[in-house]
Amino acid sequence: MTAPSGVLVLGMASWIDYWPQLGRPLSERASAAASMGGGHVHEWMCEMAAVRAARDQPLKVRASTATSPFDGGPTIEVLEIDLGLPWAGTAGHEPIILGDLPVDRCGMVLGDALALDSWTGDGHPTTDGLADVTYWGAYADAAHRQFGGDLILRHGSHVRGWLDLPLEDAKKLGNALNDWKGDEQGRGVMVAVDEHTDLHRFYRASWTHPLRIGAIKVADCPVLGINWDSGDHSMRHRGERRSGQVYPVTLQPDHTGQTTMRWTIPPYAPGHDGAE
């Protein structure tokens, strides 16, 4: 991870590209918060934590994990980012609370503030003229006999499909799969046509990572996307901020006297899962 602008952002992937519609670009809001020692920025559905970071060196990212009580897989418990700056806290080694963030159902994005001004999310057209087509379901084998498609590993299970197709070819193939019926009752397969946006590229990069983390380039700058299992999110984080499902973001010193940003997600406690 690098932050050539000197400002690092941890934000909700759903809304990274919506900030300009609220008045000012993400980078301007993030820089203002970082200039005051770091902070949490929240307007409408958009949220992020922004901090100063070293411009001229790689920033290490670490995660400690816990076992999800719902799917048995690893889930992030603490996310730590070394900021490459000396600790400047005014109360000794006491952490500085920046605010809190929910776990976005579309994942979280960690990257340079200026680079994230170029982020393309859900609903944006393909950035390279390409798209991916995947399909799955009880009749996937029958559909494969008629349409073909590669076997694609995605978060521990397999789907069929094609990657990096020209957009118009992908749309035609998606329409044909949607129209196809696998039995006399009209049942077919589930189909997704995903245009190559930054959001989809992050998802795709995370398909084989045990923590659903994917690194991509945005505006020639490395950006980290962090996704959550949909079942784990539904049980632990559903409702997000409106249901009080938010988790503290702090600055604190490491053992060498350098500054670390930490996002801490407490263990799941039955009865506090955000259910409405």
Rank of each mutant, 00 (worst) to 15 (best):
E240T: 15
V61Y: 03
I16G: 00
D194Y: 01
A142L: 06
A63L: 09
H40M: 09
I97S: 07
G137T: 11
L116V: 12
V9W: 03
W263N: 05
G161C: 05
C106E: 05
T127W: 02
W15C: 14
M261Q: 05
D117V: 15
A13S: 15
H93E: 04
T208F: 10
R154F: 08
Y203D: 02
D150T: 15
T127A: 03
D128S: 04
D141C: 12
G156N: 09
V109T: 11
G271Q: 04
Q252E: 11
T67P: 00
G214A: 06
T65C: 15
D128F: 10
S68N: 10
S31W: 02
R145D: 07
G23W: 00
I216A: 04
I97V: 12
Y135A: 11
G11D: 01
L114V: 14
Y139P: 08
D122A: 12
A115E: 05
A192E: 09
A143H: 04
P267T: 12
S5G: 02
W162F: 10
L116G: 13
Q146D: 07
V7L: 08
D150A: 14
P267Y: 07
N175E: 04
V103G: 01
F202A: 08
G182P: 10
D117S: 14
E168D: 15
A205M: 07
D112I: 13
G23M: 06
L26C: 13
V189H: 01
G257Q: 05
R204N: 12
D273Y: 01
A53M: 02
G182K: 05
L83K: 01
W44S: 11
D220R: 13
R24Q: 04
L130M: 12
Y18K: 14
S234K: 14
T127I: 14
A33R: 11
G73W: 00
V61H: 00
G161A: 11
S27H: 09
A66F: 07
S230A: 12
P4R: 05
L101G: 11
P69H: 08
T256R: 13
T2V: 08
H158S: 14
L79K: 01
T2C: 04
